[in-house]
Design a protein around this nucleic acid. Structure first.
Lengths: 339, 339
DNA sequence: ACCATAGCTGTGAACGGTCACACAAATAGT
DNA sequence: ACTATTTGTGTGACCGTTCACAGCTATGGT
């Protein structure tokens, strides 16, 4: 029942008739151990199902081979999607992952998250940080200089980070509508305290102005389908003088679609609607949604890769990696109806 | 730059003019330390921002205050949703969480996942296991007797587990359709190698038979919207003799909805469609989807609670906790059209 | 006045690894 | 043939905690 004491290096050593140090060498692939001995010990380890004790190891080496992931807004598609690929990439790089999800990004919460992670002696921290809150410098300060990479955080060249160029996404989809002939374009934005939401919002405005048009009304949503529904209702109550709506994510676009249908407005015949994210379901919306694809998988994976790079070379110059989103054309966008 | 050596118990002790053991007592809230001393040490710890070293601690205590979460199918709504609440509950219970996502559930993969976790000396393992694969006994064997709780795994009273009673969900939604007057009901099921999918499938059949009707055709989908779309196309190519379709999750229902519309079939006037899960977007589908709510948050939270209970009391009799799903009526289901 | 007990504090030895070093044997260089 | 080097192996100290135990002081019961 209760397991006999866990195996240790010494147990293996005794069985193999060598010293514990030799076993340690084998485990860590150090040179200078006879091929025959190495093999014998390997076999023994497999046979006895021995696992080195991570605590002891990281105590001795001061490295934990562990990465921390601090994330916010896991309820949303993007962050959740990233976690999968982050875990995978971390494992591939030989690191374990401890997870810390912060509900909000107040200083206290983040401090707690980091504190709870600090005693792990993690080798690095990956932070998904979609909204301003505790400053990066602060976080670094709290974490005592552990290498940290930020995903989708503020645009600051002093911060090692990797992010999707939101402005580009917003621009290409707005230009797509402009090319179709739309001139009166409204927006349902995300919560403007999110970096992504703000960048998309501003880029939409700039693109409109650059094309010589005035940006239409903009309603602030909350990323959810219900929120998109309400935002669209609100927009319709303010004006009907638009032929296209740029929605800041796909879920809200779904809600917007529904609100339009409730009013008997057809998409794309009467109004074009475009989203952002390209969630897997977007192709089955009614109608299938024109949107912008963000490669969350690439984002997560490159985040880990860059973090590992920084761990191995902490004094390298700081980089800001950028990933560009792509336009996905479907059926929810079409030329405006001739008036 | 490079941080001066991390603080240790001894540093604090020296500063406070006491022995390291006293500091240790303060940290662990042990009795027999003068109130005045305790306060002074607390202040010092806060001031110097000292964090006990987790590795050393777990080496000495043989407890890591860490739980492992092994999960499969993180791409799907349910598991992803659970992770959030599992992390939260774990933190609330004073445990950290290490994450291991297995792509598939072959014996090798799971073995890797468990092995990579074993050297953590985790205090417990939570396993989200939606499909058969490596047997629980096997897993336990590999993990060397660490307390383990399974979420949504096989129905086996020898396994500490917590799951949603899928059969009930499937029954109540089928009965809902029967009560509306439907008699010819088809199904789009999940991949039948998933426990959940199989249970829902069988329960649908049984409910139909119990009511005196023959179950209609059943097409196997893959949980995705696209898969639901194709499944519905396939179903329509086989038969049109049905007035309702039970779909095994909401995403597939979305695809099914679209396939029906492409054929000019109206929902719910011509055909009723019901889903399963109650994803947040379901209320904004076209039409809003009648579905079954699974409380993934409760599932995750209770999973942790039960695991902690087992850690503290490993010899307690094994329990199988059940959570019951609830019917959510919306607009995609209605009485069948009179022929 | 004496001993038992409760309250508070310190000392040495683990926990299970790694590192720096010492050492023996085999090989190579001159 | 003698030394220098490479290869293989073992020993002691240490990483930063906790645990078991010992010791000292104050208090209280008889």
């Amino acid at each position: 029942m209760s397991s006999t004491r866990r195996l240790t290096l010494r147990d293996i050593a005794k069985q193999a008739g060598v010293s514990y140090q030799t076993v340690s060498r084998v485990i860590n692939n150090h040179p200078y151990v006879a091929e025959e001995t190495r093999q014998r010990i390997h076999d023994l380890i497999a046979e006895l199902d021995y696992h080195p004790n991570k605590a002891a190891r990281s105590l001795a080496t001061r490295r934990s081979h562990t990465l921390a992931l601090i994330t916010f807004g896991m309820d949303y598609y993007g962050p959740a999607q990233m976690v999968i690929h982050i875990e995978r990439a971390a494992k591939a790089a030989g690191y374990d992952l401890v997870l810390s999800i912060a509900g909000d990004i107040s200083r206290g919460t983040v401090q707690d998250a980091i504190a709870s992670i600090m005693h792990w002696q993690v080798d690095g921290i990956l932070m998904i940080k979609p909204v301003p809150g505790v400053a990066y410098d602060d976080a670094i300060d709290i974490s005592g200089g552990v290498p940290t990479v930020q995903i989708n955080g503020e645009k600051d060249d002093r911060i090692p980070s990797i992010s999707v160029e939101q402005a580009v996404g917003s621009r290409i989809i707005t230009e797509h509508l402009l090319e179709l002939g739309h001139q009166h374009i409204c927006e349902i934005s995300g919560p403007l305290n999110w970096y992504d939401a703000l960048e998309r919002h501003e880029s939409w405005q700039q693109t409109m102005r650059a094309a010589g048009y005035k940006p239409g009304y903009s309603i602030e949503g909350d990323w959810t389908a219900q929120g998109g529904y309400r935002a669209m209702q609100k927009l319709l109550s303010i004006t009907r003088d638009f032929t296209a709506v740029v929605v800041a994510n796909d879920q809200m676009a779904l809600g917007a679609l529904r609100a339009l249908r409730m009013e008997g407005i057809r998409v794309p015949e009467d109004v074009s609607v475009v989203g952002f994210d390209d969630v897997p379901e977007a192709a089955c919306y009614e109608p299938p949604l024109t949107t912008v694809r963000q490669e969350f998988d690439v984002l997560g994976q490159q985040g880990i890769e860059y973090l590992v790079e920084r761990i191995n070379n902490p004094d390298a110059p700081i980089e800001r990696h950028i990933i560009y989103p792509a336009l996905i054309k479907r059926l929810s966008s079409a030329p405006p109806r001739r008036l």
